[in-house]
Structure formats: structure tokens, C-alpha cells
Design a protein around this nucleic acid. Structure first.
Lengths: 290, 290
DNA sequence: TCGGCCATGAAACATTTGTTGCACGGTTAT
DNA sequence: ATAACCGTGCAACAAATGTTTCATGGCCGA
């Protein structure tokens, strides 16, 4: 009578399904097919949509070993919890310390990062780029490892908008810049968990000044994303290893710069050519020769 | 009440958050951080876990334009529905040329970069990491956009080897450092076409001094790769757009740091913990709670 | 054919849900 | 100083929830 807990609530259901009364099978199939609605909507709602009696859901739950529909629903909810989606943890566990452990670590890391890139929202980046295009001035912020991403963004944007782009705190303490934010300007803050106080301060200052705030972060719940007009998400913890991954953040930064440049049209192109000409004139580059 | 119907319930929440009362901000942050529980568990449950009043949830929902908590939760539930995953719709819409040409540019860029990552040689990185592990001192070089990658590498390596890692030219003109290279030390040079004279000078100096030279470049024919003991290749021009892609270089740098750390064993781990403890002690991070 | 069994739907049940009215404490404006 | 206001917690409210009970109808075995 009391069956031991199987691997997943849905598999328990599927296994017990054939030995159930007709009506309960019907309801069981409905639950299996709409398990997301099963966890969110109410029993009566589901009954109405399935064309069945509300009591049937309670009976179904009891028939497969749960104390009631509440219990079954709780199990389904836990099974669906997003944090459990860790396709790499299994691989990480399977990886043993051996002669090729380092190589395995690297390939896993690269695969994970490659998988994370397409999950970035292109629409959000395009919208943010339009904001940058309209901004009179652009401030960029990033601390600790994120500083590298901030500096890349700063470099690329300055190639075609030299006078209007600046890293926060580049010419002195950050605090001096915080008071310089104005409406009509854009402030970009890059960060991930654990978040630095400094980056949060910058974001708050931008918000208070009425400047457009663009956050590049690993979560919508990030402190610097509060009040942000645009939030661009990347996965920092997706890859194995001890350090969080910045590949996603960098990809976002590059796309942002590319689209902003594209929006700039011929004017931006002209500016870029001027800059490149100047760099070439000071013999920065090694001459290309066949 | 007329609802502006923004993009996502979480976005609305995030935007309105700073202008909300103190306790409502608290509750709002909790919802943003635990949006899955928000859709499944009950209001009173959430209130108990958040340490807040149940009524606060209703008030929060009304404050951001919903008729009540039920309404907000329904919106969150719909936003989380697994069937309507955005990547496909975004890609489908973006394929056309026109107003969404920017989106097409971004998705193409991301796809190309994701495809380029697995082509990186894990073996070469592992070998280079072993060299770094044995090096008495590590110098890092990168100019123009590559400076950002150089600085990330510098940052991560210094987390567990503070005294032995340094960016070339960080404390004055590069020329001073060039004379400081010694045998038994490692010099990392990052660059892609067009190559800067400065990076080539560093590479040549490293070679003459008998230091181990590691080149991270887009081609084996790169000037700074001449005489290098290790050459780590990435694809800079693989992605569409005007600027070359640094995603591959960054992925290499991160893998390099991760493996070098892994080789460091318990000593490196101890060093990293010390560094993190020091950062936490100076209250660099926002305290995590919830 | 009869009698017991079980599946099934409708209605009544106790709980829990989301909501709202009210009083208290703090701040701001007059 | 006083009044008005707002944010907040508490408690009571009506509605909705999951559960149970009961009556009905069909099925199979005797």
C-alpha cells in the first residue's frame, strides 16, 4: 500500500497510471501533460479545464502514495525548482583526479560558457544600445574582475565617441564622478555576486540623478539592478571552477558596443576612421606585410 | 487603473523599487530573489520566510500597478511558463532585415562566438598553465582592447599569487620592466591583428632574457608568437561586426587562471581564502541575506 | 436476479487564502 | 506646537482552497 518514494513524482504517476480507475487515469494524464499548471493553478481550475471533478485530483494523489493533492503538488513544485537544473554538476562529480583532469576542466568550462552565450537576450541588448546612442554622455563602472569588462567597453566606445565616454573614477575618487551624473546621460554598471558596495553606490547615484541606468549582472535581483532601465543578464556561475565566468558579460559588452556603433551610422564610422588614422600615424601598429 | 503593460513583471518591480517605502523595498527584493517560490508558495509562507507582514505583499503588488497579490503572482507565473521561451521567438523575429537588424547582428555574433569557444585547444592551455605554475614570476602584457583581458588575468592570478604576478608597465614605462625579465619567469603577451609594436617589443625582450614566453593570439604567424614556448589561439575575426571578438581570448585567460589555481593545490587555496577574507573584512561586499 | 463492491459526481466541511479596516508611531508641513 | 500625513503591524473579514462525506449508478460475482 505505502509505496516507497520513487525518483520523481511524475515517474511515480506514470508507473502507477495503468492500474488506476478510468477517470483517475484521465486526470493523471492531464497532470502529466500540464505539470506546470498543476504546480501553479488551483485544483478547481485544473478540474474545470480537464473536464473532471475536483475531488478526482485528491483521489489521484492518494492513489499514488501521497497524503493528498497538496502533498503531490509540493513534490511537483520541488521537482521543477530551477536551481536543480545543473547539467554540469553531474559531469563535475564524474570527473576524477587523474592525468587529464586539467584538460577535462578546461573543456567543461568552455562547453559551459559556449552554452551560456545563446541564452543572452538580444532584444534587451538592442534596446540598451539605443539608449546609449541617445545618451549625451556614457559612464561605465565595474570593480574587481568586472573592471576588465568595463575597460573593454570604455575602449571600444571611445573609438567612435571619445569625448562622451568615461570610466567612473578614472580621474580621481569615484565619489567625485557620482555627483556629475545628469539626466540624459547613461550609466553602465557591471557586476555579479558577491556585489561590491561601490558598484551599488554608483547605481543608486545614477538613479537619483535621473540618469539612464544600464545594469549588466548575473541576476535581476542584483542590488545594482534596482531601478535600472535596462538589465542585461549573463551566467557567471554556469561554468565549473572557482572563479565566476566573465565570458557572458564580455559578449554582452561587445554586442552593446557593436550595435551602438551601428546606430551611429556614418558619423560614427567617420569618427572611428579618424581614431584609427591617428593610431596608425603614431606607428602603434606593426606594418602589415605579406 | 490603466496598466502600462511593461515587458516583464520583474522589470516593473525592479524599476519601481527605489521609489517604494522601506519595508516594501525589502519585500520586493525578496520577491525578485525568490521569484520561483513567489509563484508557488502562499503569501503567508513567504511573509514568514521574509520576516515581513503578509499584508506587505498585497501592498507591494498594488504599488506597482497590479490589482493585488493574486494578479502579480499570475503575471509572474505566466512569465515563467516554460513553453514560451524567448530565444526562439527572438531569433525568428530577428531574422528579417529591417528594424530588427540589430537583433540579428547580436544573435549572429553570439552564435559565432559560442561556436568558436570549443575550438580552443585545452591541451595547450593545460601545458601553459603548468609553465605558469613553475614560474617564479609572471608578467602580463596586452594593449588596446587586449588590455582588458590582461587585467582580468592579472586580477585572478593575483588572488592566489599576489607577489609574483604583475602587468608590464603597471608601475611606469614598459621599458623599465623589459629589462627585468629573467630566466625562470613567464611572460604572457596577448594580442591580435593589427599587432602593436609595444606587444612585439615585450615578446622579443622576454625571448632575449630567456624567460618563458606565452602568447595568446589569433594566429601562429603573429609577431609576438615568434619564439614563444606556448601559443594559445583564439578566433578574433570569427564574429560579424566591426570590432574583433575578445570572447575567445577571455575564455583562454580564465581557463589558464583556473588550471593554474588547480595546480597550486592547498597552498593556492589557502592564499585565495586569505585574500577573500581580507576583502570581506574591508566590507567590500554587500552582505548576503535571505 | 440479487447483493456487495467500487468508481464517480455533488455538496458540505474546516482551513487557509488574499484582502481590508483600524490603530499606533514617526515624520513633515503649517 | 499642532495638525496632517504616511508607513506599518495587527486582527478581522469574505472568498477560495483542499478535503471529506454522502448518495447515486454501474459492474461483477453469487
Amino acid at each position: 500500500m505505502a509505496e516507497p518514494a520513487k525518483s520523481s513524482p511524475l515517474s511515480e504517476l506514470r508507473i502507477a497510471l495503468p492500474s488506476l480507475p478510468l477517470r483517475l487515469q484521465e486526470v493523471g494524464r492531464f497532470v502529466a501533460a500540464n505539470d506546470y499548471d498543476a504546480t501553479t493553478r488551483s485544483m478547481r481550475d485544473l478540474a474545470a479545464e480537464a473536464g473532471a471533478d475536483p475531488a478526482a485530483f485528491t483521489r489521484l494523489a492518494k492513489a499514488i502514495g501521497y497524503s493528498g493533492w497538496d502533498d503531490l503538488r509540493a513534490a511537483l513544485t520541488e521537482a521543477r525548482r530551477p536551481s536543480q537544473t545543473s547539467p554540469f554538476s553531474a559531469r563535475a562529480k564524474g570527473r576524477r583526479h587523474g592525468p587529464n583532469a586539467d584538460v577535462t576542466l578546461i573543456t567543461d568550462k568552455l562547453e559551459a560558457e559556449a552554452a551560456g552565450l545563446p541564452r543572452i537576450s538580444a532584444h534587451a541588448i538592442a534596446d540598451a544600445a539605443r539608449t546609449l546612442h541617445d545618451a549625451r554622455r556614457i559612464w561605465i563602472t565595474g570593480y574587481r574582475s568586472c573592471r576588465s569588462v568595463a575597460e573593454l567597453l570604455n575602449y571600444e566606445l571611445r573609438l567612435f565617441r571619445p569625448e562622451q565616454v568615461q570610466i567612473v573614477g578614472a580621474s580621481g575618487p569615484d565619489d567625485l564622478d557620482l555627483g556629475a551624473f545628469r539626466a540624459g546621460e547613461a550609466v553602465i554598471v557591471i557586476g555579479f555576486m558577491p556585489y561590491t558596495h561601490a558598484s551599488v553606490r554608483v547605481a543608486q547615484a545614477a538613479y537619483r540623478a535621473g540618469a539612464t541606468l544600464i545594469a549588466i549582472a548575473d541576476s535581476v535581483a542584483a542590488p545594482m539592478a534596482e531601478g535600472a532601465d535596462h538589465v542585461l543578464l549573463f551566467e557567471a556561475a554556469s561554468s565549473p571552477g572557482f572563479f565566476p565566468s566573465l565570458t557572458g558579460a564580455l559578449a554582452i559588452a561587445q554586442s552593446l558596443a557593436a550595435v551602438t556603433f551601428s546606430l551611429g551610422g556614418s558619423a560614427a564610422k567617420k569618427r572611428l576612421e579618424d581614431t584609427e588614422a591617428r593610431l596608425a600615424a603614431t606607428s602603434t601598429y606593426v606594418s602589415e606585410k605579406g
